[in-house]
Design a protein around this nucleic acid. Structure first.
Lengths: 207, 207
DNA sequence: GGGGTCATGTAATAGGTTACATGATTCT
DNA sequence: AGAATCATGTAACCTATTACATGACCCC
């Protein structure tokens, strides 16, 4: 259901959140988002930021506070959070935390069409995926360690912990899946394989 | 890195996949996608389908085969897969299976800003989330059982099994997180709470 | 002092979603 | 026969991503 918000891009949520600290101009916001590592959890790109800021302003969640100019640099418009913005931030976050939305992770999509590849190849590809997953996991763990070493409290790395959980779950799923193909119970793998053997590399989808 | 595909929408992948069975016109494709339950794993909506079909045609992955007319209904253009399309299907799928992409699940984003809500409220919201997750899990499981009862082999429900895995992982993460707030080690929760107590309901973000 | 890259923003393009349109079929 | 729903597609709109622009600062 998920109430239709005036501004839907999650980048906007990050903007609202950071503006509770102090008024800022868009570029500064972008810089802050990058520095705090928010861009690993919320898709960020330069262009979208300006768009989102405009949308938030039009919706009344933030307001132009001053337009200063520093030397000959382009004008920087500083925005501040409004009361409506503060409310929106809290309501939106509440909804996100309380209500899981149906999403479409790429691997789910891929699995739903996996029959289009022959089982032997799938096993091989999944093996490579497992390495990639392990790499990612190690990378995140390193990030976590580094951050904690700087004295940052757990609260600020919860999302990275969650990512690790997700990666672990995916890895063990993939392992189980591989095993179910290489040591099959029943004959479904045979059927799957036969399908591709007959039509060497243009098998019809099994889905 | 993920090579830039001429058509990026995953709906296009499903289209290619279904066209390996036989040529179809767009509406039929949509119908089939819905019937086979693909729309639970790949975002589908009517408008996007026509867009994607056009894109695929322009890219040479599918080709207009005939334009039949049935009574006074609008013309139906039937599309068939080309060799390039068959290749694209396989390569794309391979890439998706082999290489995990960085994604932005909403809950990850929410967690990254969770400090903007006070811990007491977060605990409450997470409790509700757990119920929702359990509901979803039950729903998927019911789907799985129903499908299996119809004699469909495991291969075609792998993606639903994976979803269940993901839901379980998320649930247990949330449980652990709740526990870490209600039975905290160290004083980070106190700090978090104090933050919101001082500024009754307009706390600055802790991130 | 010329070449890169930082700071800052606007504009053009492409992608996707919603809304609209209309004949055909089915239901009551 | 009128209402609802199916079948089928087009068009308008909104969002997001890329590309473009330009002065300032820094490096060698």
């Amino acid at each position: 259901m998920a109430k239709k918000r005036k501004v839907g891009n999650l980048l906007a949520l990050a903007v609202l959140s950071h503006l509770t600290e102090r008024p800022m101009h868009p570029y500064e916001l972008g810089r802050t988002l990058q520095d705090r590592g928010d861009s690993r959890s919320i898709k960020f790109n330069h262009g979208s930021l300006y768009m989102v800021v405009q949308q938030l302003a039009k919706a009344g969640f933030i307001a132009e506070q001053e337009t200063s100019r520093d030397g000959q640099r382009p004008e920087r418009t500083v925005y501040a959070l409004t009361d409506a913005g503060r409310t929106e931030l809290r309501e939106w976050l509440r909804e996100l935390v309380e209500t899981p939305e149906h999403e479409y992770p790429q691997f789910v999509s891929a699995l739903s069409l996996i029959g289009a590849l022959p089982p032997g190849e799938v096993v091989e590809l999944l093996g490579r995926r497992l390495s990639h997953l392990a790499e990612q996991r190690a990378g995140i763990q390193a990030e976590i360690d580094k951050t904690l070493a700087q004295g940052v409290p757990e609260l600020f790395i919860v999302e990275e912990r969650f990512r690790v959980t997700l990666l672990d779950a995916e890895s063990s799923f993939v392992e189980r899946f591989v095993k179910s193909i290489t040591e099959p119970e029943g004959d479904w793998v045979k059927v799957w394989d036969a399908f591709h053997s007959r039509q060497p590399s243009s098998g019809e989808p099994l889905s």
